[in-house]
């Protein structure tokens, strides 16, 4: 990254370690992880299953405490407490939405009683639902909707929150391929429209390249940073055309090589940039 100097850092992770206690002593799931995410950036973290991606997300959201190292959100260190202005979209939409609230209720819930008037809350909810293409579904219940639509509700809830940092943990891993493509384009357009800073976790290499400005590649057991790379693709991107571009194909195979054949660096792969 060359332009990073002028941009505001939203998330700074330094020397992060997370270790489980087991019968045979401590087992590191995350090992000395350092990276940063700047304002307005769309950064993906891609890594094999079991690379501690969800654990990392939980630490960043304040749900888990890191064993060592520091995490700063907007310059404020988080230590076990929940950072202000961070929203998290889970993979399991059906269990993270509240089934006893309507779609609108779910979206409005986190922003109610935060000094906003009822009218402002309603307006923000409406806007967010509109942004994810759910006009007219406000009064429905989440369980009346398809999986893809439920995940849209979760995204709308996060948008209404106006987070400084939006964390997304494999958000499209449990929907069908067509829905997944739709949701990818949705989140890309939302990113453009709202300028939201997004940290997106996935195990899908194509998805990470297609969506992001920058890709972080993690290793498995324990999670280490293997690659931190800008995505040299212009926006807006297209599900078909972008994926055929040489830059896309090249970056994808580079990442695939790192993940699928660990220990055999692909020709031309840059050394890890730690910023």
């Amino acid at each position: 990254m060359t332009s990073s100097g002028e941009r505001n850092q939203v998330l700074g992770v330094r020397d992060l370690v997370y270790a489980y206690k087991t019968a045979d002593g401590d087992l590191e799931a995350i090992s000395n992880l350092s990276f940063r995410v700047d304002e307005g950036e769309f950064v993906s973290i891609v890594g094999p299953s079991g690379s501690g991606k969800t654990t990392l997300m939980k630490i960043l959201a304040g749900l888990l405490r890191a064993t060592r190292g520091s995490v700063e959100v907007s310059g404020k260190p988080i230590t076990g407490n929940v950072p202000e202005g961070v929203a998290l979209v889970f993979q399991d939409y059906s269990r993270s939405l509240f089934p006893w609230m309507t779609v609108e209720g779910n979206v409005a819930f986190p922003i109610t009683r935060r000094g906003l008037s009822a009218g402002e809350v309603a307006e923000r909810s409406r806007q967010s639902l509109s942004a994810v293409g759910l006009d007219g579904f406000a009064r429905r219940y989440p369980w009346e909707l398809s999986g893809g639509m439920q995940q849209r509700v979760a995204i709308a809830r996060a948008l209404a929150f106006r987070p400084r940092l939006l964390l997304m943990d494999e958000p499209f891993a449990s929907v069908d391929a067509q829905t997944k493509a739709d949701l990818e384009d949705l989140i890309a357009s939302v990113h453009q429209q709202f300028g939201t800073t997004i940290l997106f976790v996935t195990h899908d290499i194509d998805e990470s390249v297609y969506l992001s400005d920058r890709v972080l590649v993690l290793s498995a057991h324990p999670a280490r940073l293997l690659l931190d790379r800008e995505v040299p693709l212009s926006r807006p991107r297209d599900q078909v055309a972008t994926r055929e571009l040489p830059d896309f194909v090249h970056l994808r195979s580079e990442i695939a090589g790192l993940i699928l054949r660990p220990g055999h660096p692909v020709q031309g792969a840059d050394p890890v940039q730690t910023r």
Binding site: K21, T22, L27, T54, T55, L64, E170
Partner: peptide, 8 residues
């Protein structure tokens, strides 16, 4: 992916 919780 669920958090791997390793317990004794």
């Amino acid at each position: 992916m669920s958090t791997p919780t390793l317990r004794r």
